[in-house]
Structure formats: structure tokens, C-alpha cells
Design a protein around this nucleic acid. Sequence first.
DNA 1: GACACATAGTCAGACATTCTGTCCATATTG
DNA 2: CAATATGGACAGAATGTCTGACTATGTGTC
Lengths: 149, 149
Amino acid sequence: MDERNISAAERTIGYLLRLPYERLSERVYGALAAQGFPDIRPAHSAVFRHIAGSGSRVSDLAERARMTKQSMAYLVEALASAGYVAATPDPADGRAKLVRLTRRGRAVSETLVRLSREAEEELAARLPPGRMAALRRLLGELAEVLERS
Amino acid sequence: MDERNISAAERTIGYLLRLPYERLSERVYGALAAQGFPDIRPAHSAVFRHIAGSGSRVSDLAERARMTKQSMAYLVEALASAGYVAATPDPADGRAKLVRLTRRGRAVSETLVRLSREAEEELAARLPPGRMAALRRLLGELAEVLERS
DNA sequence: GACACATAGTCAGACATTCTGTCCATATTG
DNA sequence: CAATATGGACAGAATGTCTGACTATGTGTC
């Protein structure tokens, strides 16, 4: 059996999910760097994706991103020292601090969403009409099932 | 805007791809560990996924996995010292060596494919009939488009 | 055949991203 | 108030990736 071209049957669903994910990441974070945010890396999306407009606690961010508090704190610290987020004490809890996006952080967040949408649209244009919408719909259903566990 | 529950419109396609990928990875590599291969981690899939039955060069593996020779050599070395692969000189090229799966390496490869299929089937059972097949088909089309670039 | 260039692999070092374990300060609850 | 839980910080480690520099071998041209 020649595995140079992995047969369709042997492509795991994980491989099929990972391939486009990585290509999109490369593209989006490359473009983000070109637009003046070279220090934002894919790992930081865990923060941008989950942070609330009113600010979030590190613990909350960690839980939503399914990582340890320490790992999330590392990401937040990097973003804070680069001016993308700022932390203020949580008035409701003396132990906690609220992490908020700065203006620059909001710019990153909006740019990420825009670049991702653009990448998706360009990819959609290379597929038969409706395919990308169907894919998005299916992935949404899958996410719903997964979030329920 | 409350971002605690990311609205469907704001879910990037990257996020939608990444979510199931990560859940599947956790599950598959957790099960693999439980079946006696605790030292195989997701990064090693770059080797298992691309290695040819007749053996592959490190450079070839690196290129197919889209990583540097050095990074691939690091993964191969870890697998070699744990007995999952073995390297022999390439008779056709004195600079090169051929990396081959050992019996134990083939067992891992087969187990990975099986576990992934099982995970996919169980997930499919939690979706309306046909959805997983449709998803796989769409991801296959997407991969075809992406490989062409 | 010699030289120039390309390729396979290695060594060294760096960095990013995660983890575990430990600890302190503050809340919460019986 | 005592006991426990929680938010966060500090220290250390493992993993996986990169760049740069290097050696040895192969390839192609004169």
C-alpha cells in the first residue's frame, strides 16, 4: 500500500478538520501581522474569542478556553504588556481582576473577525456554490452536540 | 454586546473547525494512551500520517507535514528511541536514511485509525442521519481545493 | 575529473505554549 | 469563627516548533 497519497478512506476526520484549520490560521495571522499586529499569534485567540465586553476574569477565560488558569494568565500577561488588554481589580471580588480589551485590543478582535470572514469568502468562491454555507451549518450542528458534553 | 455566548455570526470558520478537532484529539489520544501507547502524542501524527510503507526520508516527511526538517527529525527521534520507528540508510542515497514503522509502530498507526473511526461513528450517532457523511464529503472537497495551492 | 551548487541530515540555541505543584489572599459557608 | 473553596501568582518543567550554522553526499557543467 502506497501511503504517499493517503486514501480517502484513511483520512481521519481529525485530519480533515485540521488541514483547513491550519491553512486558515496561517493566512489570517499572516495578514494580521501585515496589518500592523505582528505580535498576535494564534494562541492569543483563546483570549480574544472568549473575553466579554465588560471584562472577564482570568479563571473564566481559562475555563472557556479549556486550559489552566496559569496558561491563560501567561497569554493575558503577554497581551497586557503589549497593550492589547488591561486588567483592573474586580469591584465585586477582592481576589479577582477583570481583563478588558483596550482600544487596540478591540481593533485586533475586529480585524481577526474581518480577516477570517474574508478568508472564508475567498475559499467559498473556489468551491461550488453553497458548499461553504453547508459546511458552516454542519460544523455549527457539530459544535452544538459537542458543547452538550 | 455580550460576548459570553459568541453569536453564530461571529464564530469564525476557524473556530468551528478547531473545536471538533480538539475534542477528537483529546478523545483519540486519551484512548490510545489507555490502550498501551501513552507516549504517543498528537504531534507524532505528523509522522504516522505521512510515512510510507516502504519507508520515508525525514525530508519527505517534513515537507508533507509542512514543517522543517529539524522539527520532523525531533519527532522521528522520539519515536525511534521509543521503538515505534527505525531508520536504515537509504541504499539509493548516501546522505539519506529511510524511516520505517516497526511492528509496534504499525500497531499504533492501525489503532489510531480505528480509534478515530470509532470516535467519528459515535459522534455521527449523535447527529441526524447522514450529517457526518455530508461533513466528511465537504471537508474532502475543501481539502482538494486547498491542496491545489 | 574538478568545481559549483543543491540536498539530507545534524547540532546548538531560542522561543512559545502548555502543564503540575505550591503558595497567598480573599470569599463563602457551616 | 473555623473550614473550605476560589482567584490569582510564582517556580519549574516538558513539548513542539523555529532559525542559523555546519558536514557529508549527490548532481550537473565545463
